[in-house]
Design a protein around this nucleic acid. Structure first.
Lengths: 227, 227
DNA sequence: TCAATACTTCGACCGACAGCGTAGTATTAA
DNA sequence: TTAATACTACGCTGTCGGTCGAAGTATTGA
């Protein structure tokens, strides 16, 4: 009668699979072996987990030669994982702090969150967009202002609304900064633009976004982020 | 380094606990025995599960005499469960339909979804609010129009914004109707108002919202819902 | 054709944990 | 005080499922 929450949750609720899913939040499709390495298990075990995740509809798989590329099935799944991540962070922080240990500073600075930018820099970006009135925030909803639409259009961004059901802008709670950053189509465009301009590249084995000196300077200038 | 998604997900990812959590989505606090009955297990097992859910920060507990009342820890948790419910529904519907079985028609008609109204009637309500331009919907975001604010204010609704971080309006995908209905503070107010006016009452052992003949008529009139 | 790589299937092991029976401790009611 | 109710602690059992080794199937490249 009621859809079974438990089957989806139990798919995520296993350490190894959770690690794989988190790795895939980078948005990039990964092969079975890459995911096996990521989760630190053998290929056989990985294969078993991945088939479960695919039949469980959390992942989709694309076969290419002798490789199989896995990725999150869609934004809904990504959103679910983000929500889980946020709640887990909340919980972890209110628990007798055992291992609050300082995370990798580069990871704190800038990283990929599914398909948009997260970390310190992204929070500053968010603030700057607010100050420049390119976006407005009400409660948990974020919207592009007319100025904002012009701003992005001028840079050649094709972020048409209504194309999909996905919102143009969406605030996403940053689990390292505990503040909002920008998700949604616009957030995605900004990240892609970063890479296209060559201002930064994504580390292969992690979610770290590594800026070049020049890239960081130009990025800050473009979005008026104080140094 | 990274908060562990798996521990939260695994708490939900067990059939019995999932049933308890779903039962608590009614928003009402329930005692341990009530939850044990709901999940069809003994009191001992229920006790064990509930203590896990409390230490896992998904539930809070209030002791009252020899009873212990459990409820979801907050709207975030409720939102997580809703998201899971939606995704599970999606998945269930695209799977070789084994048990699409017709749910309890009363449950389909009107039920409680955490703290707001769900089901056929709620979808019609949502449509009507759109038509009357009391709310507007863009992508997945919903907002109260000026007219809408007046409308609810005239009825004595104290739905002030910015009070909490919770949005005034929020669309919530209905798992029986597969369409949007209204959540958020306004959605909550509407449900409470329903009960206060005596137009409907909530079944004790389920999430069914049972309208009286008169209540249904007045409700439809108030929100201009076609019969 | 042969070798190397990528992934899957099968079978076995084993640890984790849901479930319950028994026996407790609070709290209420008579 | 006694009895009943609500919940909890402990120990046991049975099962589910994650893990890997070994063997097998596809795909690529030489």
């Amino acid at each position: 009668m009621q859809p079974d929450i438990a089957i989806v949750a139990s798919l995520i609720g296993e350490t190894t699979r959770a690690r794989m899913l988190t790795a895939l939040m980078g948005g990039k499709a990964l092969t079975a072996t890459e995911l096996a390495v990521e989760a630190d298990i053998t290929a056989q075990t990985a294969s078993s987990h991945l088939s479960k995740l695919v039949t469980g509809q959390l992942l989709i798989v694309r076969k290419q030669g002798r490789h199989k590329y896995f990725q999150l099935k869609g934004p809904k799944i990504a959103a679910l994982l983000e929500t889980l991540l946020n709640i887990s962070t909340d919980i972890a922080s209110t628990r007798p702090a055992v291992t609050t240990g300082p995370a990798d500073p580069r990871l704190r600075a800038a990283r990929v969150c599914y398909d948009h930018l997260a970390g310190e820099l992204s929070v500053k970006l968010f603030d700057s967009l607010i100050v420049k009135k390119l976006i407005i925030q009400e409660a948990e909803q974020v919207q592009l202002t007319a100025q904002g639409q012009d701003f992005f259009a001028d840079m050649g961004a094709s972020i048409a609304p209504s194309k999909s059901k996905r919102p143009l802008c969406k605030s996403c709670l940053d689990w390292s900064e505990r503040r909002s950053h920008l998700a949604g189509i616009t957030g995605q465009w900004i990240l892609n633009d970063l890479f296209k301009q060559g201002w930064a590249h994504k580390d292969l084995d992690s979610r770290i976004v590594q800026f070049s000196q020049r890239g960081l300077r130009l990025f800050r200038k473009k979005y008026a982020i104080e140094g």
